[in-house]
Design a protein around this nucleic acid. Structure first.
Lengths: 251, 251
DNA sequence: GGATCGAGTTGACCGTAGTCAATAACGCGC
DNA sequence: GCGCGTTATTGACTACGGTCAACTCGATCC
């Protein structure tokens, strides 16, 4: 769909607004609007605010902030994490374009975790009162919202399986495969990963230490599975990577 | 509130139906209906089916079954788990009265995990199509449903923090404290736990082996924190238990 | 009452990943 | 270009929890 054909169906919108709209967005079908048709899509669109881009290291919200909105990654990537009272951090997940953030806040008016940009990122903001109002009269959106939240649960459960008993190399393999699959869904090359997070972030997320992650990257490179160069990782043998993952899944 | 006074407000219902209703249920305010008023409560009630009790070891649903309903524990307790293709099991959580089960199925029409009774248990079934129909015209229920699902996410995140880097004794301490707190919310004695799950289940859930859990129970008993006798655990020194937990929380 | 079975406890030993430390590679500012 | 700080890699050693095995304790069944 080109801008021109789309313009025909929504002539009243300015080109600028149009360019920011969900219908035009490349994330369209992997994002909250997936499955919504024209009219509903426009109504959802009216609730979306686009925040100015977040620079690397700056926070979208902090643990304990009062809950105001859900967010969706438009471009870039972010990490969510919690900090214990003794200052230790646990990374809960990484967020790529099309993925939702802030759902933990729905349960008690405060975000239970912090979210921070790993690189310069654009974010769509969905103020919750408006989203609630719109979805009240739009069963399709309502259902889609519940589906997306439920998907978070399933992803977290997959991660719990990994943290439960898998050995270190399998954790790293599953992590890389998950990233590759998500890249694929975004129509990027799933064999050429550019890791936006540090080795420390990866280690923390996987319940390992940085040295272990580093060693395993080296080992998988020696085994001909990967080509690693700093933040860029090329998957040379997807079959061997899958073999390392065993029967477990994480998407 | 006695049965008689309640009967006066709903004379058309049979006593039997009444006894099964959400309004009469002891779990009332820690369950899905929390915050709903009379009229709404009755409408929710109409969608609830009570399944016959599940015996110890029998399944509520299996991983891969097609998604039909959400479930709530009325009495007893259950465990949810996933099985990898290589036959290994990972327990994802334990479910006490008032807690919801099956939310993972909302995202793609199939339950991603299995649920099995740890003891004879009563279950309320909420067929999803009906729940969806009722909540479409009842914003309060709709919002409550989202809150409950989001709560699942937050609980799982707390568990991920634990699995990330906490040492074995802290895991066991956090597990016991979590159970004690949930007992408290059910107005049971939070210092006298009757563990419905085996040592193996606890170990699996915490990412440990059975011997480690056993040793730590013994150690905490030697330290005067617990009195352990098979499945019954008495918390003698809640302060010391909290100290072992450090700054971390899990509810 | 005794045999049997499963669940749990305890001990001895071992292995994987963590700790500590040194080095290397890159990024950034001047 | 040079120096400095941050991030990553590699090596040597350690420790925590896992493995393997023996034993105890109850419950159940003839």
């Amino acid at each position: 769909m080109t801008i021109d054909t789309f313009k025909g169906t929504a002539a009243s919108l300015s080109l600028d607004k149009l360019r920011r709209s969900c219908g035009y967005c490349a994330m369209h079908d992997v994002c909250l609007p997936a499955g919504l048709d024209g009219g509903d899509l426009e109504r959802l669109d009216s609730t979306v605010r686009e925040r100015r881009p977040l620079d690397r290291g700056s926070a979208l919200f902090h643990q304990g902030d009062s809950f105001t909105a859900l967010y969706v990654v438009r471009s870039g990537s972010l990490k969510s994490y919690v900090e214990g009272s003794d200052g230790d951090m646990q990374i809960l997940g990484f967020h790529l374009p099309g993925e939702i953030m802030g759902v933990g806040g729905l349960t008690n008016d405060h975000y239970p975790s912090s979210v921070e940009a790993l690189e310069r990122s654009s974010i769509c903001e969905l103020p919750y009162p408006q989203l609630q109002a719109v979805s009240a009269s739009m069963p399709a959106l309502h259902h889609q919202l519940i589906r997306v939240i439920s998907h978070e649960i399933v992803s977290e459960q997959a991660h719990m399986v990994m943290m439960g008993k898998q050995q270190a190399q399998r954790r790293v393999a599953i992590f890389l495969r998950s990233l590759a699959d998500r890249y694929g869904r975004l129509s990027r090359d799933p064999t050429a990963l550019t890791l936006p997070m540090s080795r420390g972030d990866i280690a923390n997320y996987l319940g390992l230490v940085i040295e272990t992650v580093s060693r395993l990257f080296s080992r998988m490179e020696a085994d001909g599975i990967l080509a690693v160069n700093r933040k860029s990782v090329r998957i040379l043998r997807r079959d061997l990577l899958d073999a390392l993952c065993g029967g477990e899944t994480e998407s």
